[in-house]
Amino acid sequence: MQSNDMGYMAKSSYAPAVTLREMMEEYGSDVWNYAFFLTRSREQANDISQEVFLKAYRNIGKFRGDSSLKTWLLTITRNTAFSYGKSNFWRRFITLDTKQHLPNEVRSAEQEALGNAYANRIWEIIMALPKKNREVLALDIQHGLSIAEMAKLLGVAEGTVKSRLARARDKVRIAIKEEEQE
């Protein structure tokens, strides 16, 4: 957690004094990046970020301060990402255009395009991991959440978070080692 989160966690007044713009300036990248980790799609990350900030701004009065504002926003992000496809039932149908790739390939057209956009090879490896693995790594590396915070956000036991994290790290470490040996 970053030190500037603390300013929004006054015990007597949980709802932070924050404008929509301030909220976005402070946490926009966190929300977008987490949505991107979950969906691996820029387009969906944009749409989900919009929904998250609109929901957060509308419901800021319900924020109780039992987590940091950032964790609260990440929780909304996760819930929004998971319900994103469900209310729009027609998304079960996936259109393939001539640029898209085989359904059983891991990389979609956008992921293919993203290949060169990653900051480095490590992120490419992380983004190719199954969702459960990459999600805990993102929450750890990028957002710096504690095991307890991750467990609460993910709705699983702390032991589960630890084992997922350990598995994810093993996978990345092995992938890096294999590449170094090639």
């Binding site: 990248s29 929300v31 919009q50 609109l54 993203l114 990028q142």
Partner: peptide, 25 residues
């Protein structure tokens, strides 16, 4: 340490997106 905080070379949450969200609000 090598991974860094940001997965993409360019920011995903852009000023344009921020403005779009404000308009939606």
């Amino acid at each position: 340490r090598d991974a860094g905080k940001n997965p993409l070379r360019e920011q995903g949450f852009t000023p344009e997106l921020m403005l779009r969200i404000e308009q939606a609000a």
